[in-house]
Design a protein around this nucleic acid. Structure first.
Lengths: 87, 87
DNA sequence: ATGCATTTGTCCGTATGTATG
DNA sequence: TCATACATACGGACAAATGCA
């Protein structure tokens, strides 16, 4: 999947929420995977692209990715990208 | 020496290490020279071949060669190859 | 003299990792 | 949180020099 393809509406994240932005992003992506909208083994868009797409900063996406790595949902490979773990 | 001849086990480089990959490669080759496993004046395998052999990208090998040139351990000649300096 | 293969050299694009303000 | 910069790493493409048939 490439951002630009229309798969679902861009989610709206609330910077004023008690829930940190990066957590909202992480939860959203986890939800997309669990809903089957993002396949296992699939590569996510670059962190920079996700930042633009979601309207949040690069570092916020990085925090979200770190969160997802800790949850075991994704794996990041330097120079290649971030991938949804097989299971 | 050609890679394919068995001289020593392929080293395993750790992409997750704090030590950059190119530095690990450079250090390994310097170690091989100092250990006498690679002779002075000898030509190294091509940078592309070393990349395949070591499981790293061509540009990463190039970076390692630059490091070794700066250390004075090797000299590169366009069209010919990279050679271990006499001293 | 003319190709052809080999090798180093250069550049670009993409991506993650780290650090700073 | 955001913006920016730099380092590291990979992949592809092309150029330049060398050597050989």
């Amino acid at each position: 999947m490439v951002y630009g393809d229309h798969v679902e509406d861009r989610p709206v994240f609330d910077a004023a929420s008690a829930e940190p932005l990066y957590m909202q992003v992480a939860d959203y992506i986890e939800g997309q995977v669990k809903a089957g909208n993002i396949a296992r083994g699939q590569r996510l868009p670059s962190e920079r692209d996700m930042g633009e797409y979601y309207g949040v900063a690069y570092q916020t996406v990085r925090r979200a990715m770190r969160e997802l790595r800790e949850r075991g949902l994704v794996e990041s490979v330097l120079g290649k990208g971030t991938f949804i773990t097989k299971k």
